[in-house]
Computed example of a mutant assay.
Amino acid sequence: MAKFLLTSTYTVEGLDGLRQDGGTKRAEVIRALIENSGGRMEAMYFGFGQYDTYVVCDLPDHTTAAALAVAIRAARGLDTRISPLLTAEEVDEALRIHVAYQPPGA
């Protein structure tokens, strides 16, 4: 499984739904969505700043992550972005791969 960070900002409609449902119910809905997609929610937090919610989860693959992002955004309650997360070991592995790159103008 791969680890992902879902960041979301509520739309006006989404905020109305949050006020009706409350935070606990919304967290349960997100946990069920992730688990029904074959994943596992590690943590969910609400925040005040650039994003309203932060979800750290494990998902089977990038295709599943994309499917979740599309489904959530299409419902129009949240503007959601999904970012893959890498462990330190995965970064070390990536750094061992030689990549030839020529920057513009070089």
Rank of each mutant, 00 (worst) to 15 (best):
A2G: 07
K3A: 03
L5F: 06
T7C: 13
S8Y: 02
T9S: 15
Y10C: 05
Y10G: 06
V12S: 14
V12F: 10
D16N: 15
R19E: 15
R19N: 14
Q20V: 15
Q20L: 14
G22C: 09
G23A: 15
T24K: 13
K25V: 15
K25D: 12
R26Y: 02
R26E: 01
R26K: 15
A27C: 10
A27T: 08
A27K: 14
E28L: 08
R31G: 01
A32R: 15
L33H: 02
L33M: 13
N36I: 03
N36L: 11
S37L: 03
S37I: 01
G38P: 01
G39A: 06
G39F: 00
R40S: 12
E42N: 11
E42G: 05
A43N: 13
M44P: 00
M44F: 07
Y45N: 07
F46P: 00
G47C: 06
G47E: 08
G47H: 09
F48G: 08
F48C: 12
Q50L: 15
Q50T: 12
Y51H: 10
Y51C: 05
D52Y: 01
D52F: 02
D52E: 07
Y54F: 15
V56W: 00
V56P: 02
C57I: 01
D58F: 03
D61P: 03
H62S: 12
T63P: 01
A67Q: 15
L68Q: 02
A69Y: 03
V70T: 14
I72C: 03
I72K: 01
R73M: 08
A74F: 11
A74K: 12
A75D: 10
R76S: 13
R76A: 13
G77F: 02
L78F: 06
D79T: 10
D79K: 12
I82Q: 00
P84T: 04
L85G: 03
L86I: 03
A88E: 10
E89G: 11
E90S: 05
D92H: 07
E93K: 10
A94D: 10
A94T: 11
L95E: 11
I97N: 05
I97H: 07
V99E: 10
A100F: 10
A100K: 12
Y101N: 06
Y101C: 02
Q102F: 05
Q102D: 08
Q102A: 10
P103K: 07
P104C: 04
G105E: 10
A106T: 13
